[in-house]
Design a binder for these strands. Structure first.
Lengths: 203, 203
DNA sequence: GTCTATATTTGGATAGAC
DNA sequence: GTCTATCCAAATATAGAC
């Protein structure tokens, strides 16, 4: 039998988290306050503590929601078998996912809230995202960790510059495909070097 | 004749800014408070207002000091004439400059202080840094803005990942030389493509 | 220039009635 | 579960004496 009370509670929890996102997108991630949040959902501030133990607990719920959204949307990017094209599609997805919600990016990847870190359960969700990226690369024959680190650096670098220096524009987004071409040629060339075939390419 | 009063004032201004750096490095950039700062220099909080109009004015002085430090230290990186080696040396300098003081990096490049932006005079100093980078690239024959944007993305991406995910280590720092090799080969190859010589390389 | 005292705002969080 | 009332802490900034 349906538990109507539990359903109601879940709905209110979700409503509070949604309102929190609305606030931080409007005012900045650090500007979230329990009073403002309560007002936005039609409560008094103390009532929020019936749903969340603290403000950090709300940040944690937001983080978890963001991580789930990433996993859900990432799953829609299906590989074609063309390594470079797949790399580009994956990078475009990542950068666009981050850029379209800078507050979420700040919460999940930049960690600027003093004293906040995600709970173990929530953090596990974000680790899963990195694992999937690693799996995609492995599918392309890229297996060394240095290449993975280089790729994440390029991805976050483009994202950061886009958000910081051209918000709303596409100055760095438009470089994603080119950047992935650069990265792909680099890692494939390096592999061939290791197999001692690079200098034989033109032979 | 020396103005001993002005000298004394300058010394106190510098002392306050230095103490502010000490605080933000210890507690985080956003945690700077006038009370703590005053205590560290042996004053009461209101006395600081004889030297700075507001907390933002202190941030501005810190920003300006950071920008001057960058310009001074950047000037010590002298080109050798070898484009790739110079690119690598410049990138190593940039990443190390940022990584060795994350609070400064956050103030100058990430802009996470709500409501703070540098004054026009201070901002001009940071623009000068970008101009010098552009000049260095021009000296290597790299003149298009897309390449400059790609380079800044790679540089800040490596820096961000290093600070966020391996503080105190060198997991991403150790990728700088390789990343610059990747970038350099990409931009030189692209140039050759534009000159329609790429497909003739093996002929 | 520095101090004491204080205004003012803002925030997270709790107690206890209903 | 929600409210009112309140606590407690921290912060920026100002007024005015010395």
């Amino acid at each position: 039998m349906r538990d109507r009370r539990a359903e109601r509670r879940e709905a209110t929890l979700a409503e509070i988290v949604d309102a929190a996102w609305t606030l931080v997108r409007r005012e900045g991630l650090a500007a979230l306050s329990m009073r403002d949040l309560a007002r936005l959902v039609g409560m008094q501030a103390p009532s929020l503590y019936s749903y969340f133990d603290s403000k950090h607990a709300i940040y944690d719920a937001m983080f978890a929601q963001g991580a789930r959204a990433y996993l859900d949307e990432e799953a829609l990017v299906v590989p074609t078998g063309d390594p470079l094209a797949d790399l580009q599609a994956g990078a475009r997805f990542f950068v666009e996912f981050c850029v379209k919600d800078p507050a979420r990016y700040q919460l999940m990847l930049q960690r600027t809230i003093p004293g906040f870190e995600p709970s173990p359960a929530t953090f596990a969700l974000s680790i899963e995202g990195l694992n999937r990226l690693e799996a995609r690369l492995t599918g392309m024959g890229i297996t060394d960790h240095r290449s993975l680190d280089l790729l994440t650096a390029v991805g976050t670098g483009i994202t950061d510059q886009q958000i910081s220096n051209d918000p709303g524009g596409d100055r760095w987004i438009s470089l994603v495909d080119e950047a992935m071409e650069m990265f792909f040629h680099h890692v494939t060339k390096t592999n061939k070097t290791k197999q001692h075939t690079r200098t034989k390419r033109c032979a």
